[in-house]
């Protein structure tokens, strides 16, 4: 087992992620985050070529193991893997052994017996990637585990912000919505605070996790306060079934109190960016006029997802060092 952080390179110029897995942003240093983002810029260029393919992961096998439905993330990983020339396969939950009662550990060990190089895991349980990391030799890439982390989402968000603003440091980023059930929130908090952004989080008190202040963020339930002079407003999905848990009374009321409207957005800086990890509920956390408006970078986020995932896979495989060796 590789202990988290054990292999962080102390040399000034990093050329690879000296770690077996990407389990979360919590484990990454600012230098490693910058390396992923810089590498993603180069990977983005690959996607603009007529022939969108480089041989970086030729001969490597990547398994996408998705225990939760996902369109965006899975497609994004698959495209990233193919552009790097990896041999990829996606294990669909409906046809896997899990429905027959096999444990996650056994499923992973069986896949492992076929010697894949990487396993990209999406799972509904927090810590599922840590469990796999302890029992698998393959590199584990976290594609979202429960309400813990979704590291590649935070990385693609950071890439998108950096493209527009040229930096992360010093920006006011307001994250608004269901904080309690969001892995995107946790990864973004880790990443943005490590990179020097000022993070505000906002939602109804029923959807704010305990001890949020200890994470180096400002916490408020007043959306105007969160949006005021913000450089970035990031909205999190409100799952419709949350009303059943009495977290808030109705979608209508949520939209009235927290929904991002054009009027509310005027409190932010004139060059504010609107972000959303998707899938969106129009008219609940975000007004359609805002989602489709000039400040929205929501589709840029999706585009950057491919580049960031290419960068992560490439760097975990050894980056430039691996290519030199090969």
């Amino acid at each position: 087992m590789t202990t988290i952080g054990e292999h962080i390179d102390t040399k000034p110029a990093l050329t690879s992620l000296r770690r077996k897995d990407l389990l979360g942003i919590a484990d990454l240093s600012p230098e490693e985050i910058a390396l992923v983002l810089d590498t993603a810029v180069a990977m983005k260029e690959v996607g603009s070529r007529p022939i969108k393919k480089v041989p970086a992961l030729r001969g490597k096998t990547v398994v996408n193991l998705f225990f939760e439905p996902s369109t965006r993330t899975r497609t994004s990983f698959e495209i990233a893997e193919k552009r790097l020339s990896a041999d990829t396969l996606s294990v669909a939950i409906g046809t896997s052994s899990v429905v027959k009662g096999e444990t996650l550990a056994d499923t992973a060990l069986n896949l492992e017996a076929m010697s894949p190089d990487m396993i990209v895991l999406r799972h509904s349980s927090s810590g599922a990637c840590h469990l796999l990391s302890r029992i698998c030799r393959s590199a584990i890439v976290n594609a979202g585990d429960g309400t813990n982390e979704h590291p590649t989402q935070a990385l693609l968000d950071a890439l998108t912000i950096r493209e527009r603003k040229g930096r992360l440091k010093g920006l006011k980023v307001a994250i608004i919505g269901d904080l309690l059930h969001s892995r995107v929130l946790r990864s973004n908090i880790h990443l943005l605070t490590k990179m020097g952004a000022h993070v505000w989080v906002c939602g109804p008190p029923t959807l704010i996790p305990a001890e949020m202040k200890q994470f180096g963020v400002r916490v408020t339930s007043f959306v105007d306060e969160a949006v005021a002079d913000a450089d970035v407003v990031m909205l999190l999905r409100i799952q419709l079934e949350r009303m059943e848990g009495a977290y808030f009374p109705s979608q209508r009321e949520y939209f009235q109190v927290f929904g991002m409207t054009e009027a509310r957005l005027r409190l932010a800086r004139p060059d504010v960016m609107i972000m959303h990890p998707g899938p969106m509920n129009r008219g609940v956390e975000i007004a359609s006029e805002v989602a489709d408006g000039p400040y929205s970078v929501i589709l840029d986020q999706v585009a950057n997802g491919v580049a960031v995932r290419m960068a992560v896979l490439y760097l975990l495989a050894g980056g430039a060092e691996h290519e030199e060796a090969a």
Binding site: A26, S126, D145, G146, E149, R186, P209, A210, E211, F215
Partner: peptide, 15 residues
């Protein structure tokens, strides 16, 4: 336990 560590690890809390 509902607190800092459960929040950090994304585990559902029991106060």
């Amino acid at each position: 336990h509902e607190g800092y560590h459960a929040t950090r690890l994304g585990l559902r809390g029991i106060p």
